[in-house]
């Protein structure tokens, strides 16, 4: 046999993050049936809100922003849980850690992957929300896109930390929402408010302050997750 090839240099944080993100997206693509199920779950959630409220269309229109974000939140719990279930099968997370991959790269790749997934899901939900709830986009699509991206970033960073914890605990399916829901209330609140402003007009120019709150939330939790995540996956 030929001698071993020369030792490659260790790759940096960004390269490791991209390599892991690429792997996660590849897995999502290859298991797109699972992905589809999550999309249909979110759609069904949107639909169920209208049944829960009865035929009052005014109410639906008024609360559309909140329902939209609740649907994304519920779907995010499933998506986050799935993304760590894949890693616990065959102890793949150990394989990645020992490769070695920087634990912070694992955090970034998982959080970014979930952000991408949720943002895409949100983009699919928008036309359905417009049709089902009879709303229209008053200010601009750009605003809605921005709030969608920031909101999904805000769900994904703390969600990744908590999914990593709960995937290794008993009763993981209960634990993740129990930990995550109270935590993301500020993000959910500002995203829902800002979405409502996009749908109903923003006469008092409040949009930017909600955007700012969401941005601050993101800064804090992406930072905290980046620092604390390695402590979770390294025993």
């Amino acid at each position: 046999m030929s001698t071993t090839p020369p030792r490659p240099r260790a790759i940096g944080l960004v390269a490791a993050t991209l390599a892991l993100l690429r792997k996660d997206l590849l897995i999502e693509w290859r298991t797109r049936a699972r992905l589809n199920a999550i999309i249909f779950f979110a759609l069904a959630t949107l639909l169920m809100f209208s049944f829960a409220l009865g035929p009052d269309t005014k109410l639906l229109e008024k609360n559309a922003g909140g329902y939209f974000w609740l649907a994304i939140l519920f779907a995010s719990v499933l998506a986050l849980g799935e993304s760590f279930r894949v890693e616990s099968e065959n102890a793949c997370m150990d394989g990645v850690r020992l490769a070695p991959a920087d634990a912070r790269a694992i955090f970034l790749s998982k959080a970014l992957g979930n952000t991408l997934l949720l943002t895409a899901l949100g983009a699919l939900l928008v036309p359905v929300m417009v049709a089902l709830y009879g709303v229209r986009i008053v200010t601009s699509f750009m605003d809605l896109g921005l709030i969608l991206l920031l909101g999904c970033l805000a769900l994904s960073a703390p969600g990744t930390v908590y999914a990593a914890i709960s995937s290794n605990a008993r009763a993981r399916d209960v634990l993740l929402p129990l930990l995550l829901f109270p935590l993301v209330i500020p993000a959910l609140l500002s995203a829902a408010k800002a979405t409502t402003l996009v749908l109903q007009g923003d006469p008092m120019n409040q949009f930017n302050s909600w955007l700012g709150l969401l941005g601050g939330f993101n800064l804090i939790y992406w930072g905290v997750g980046f620092v604390l995540f390695p402590r979770i996956i390294e025993d």
Binding site: A10, I11, A19, L20, K23, I27, R30, N90, D94, A99
Partner: peptide, 30 residues
């Protein structure tokens, strides 16, 4: 970097092909 473990758990992603599994690791190793 200097040790490698062949464990009871295979460290293999069930949903990826054999080739993809190795490619993922090769990318991580640079």
């Amino acid at each position: 970097r200097d040790v490698a473990l062949l464990s009871h758990a295979s460290f293999l992603y069930e949903d990826l092909t054999a080739h993809q599994n190795l490619t993922v690791l090769a990318r991580l190793l640079g």
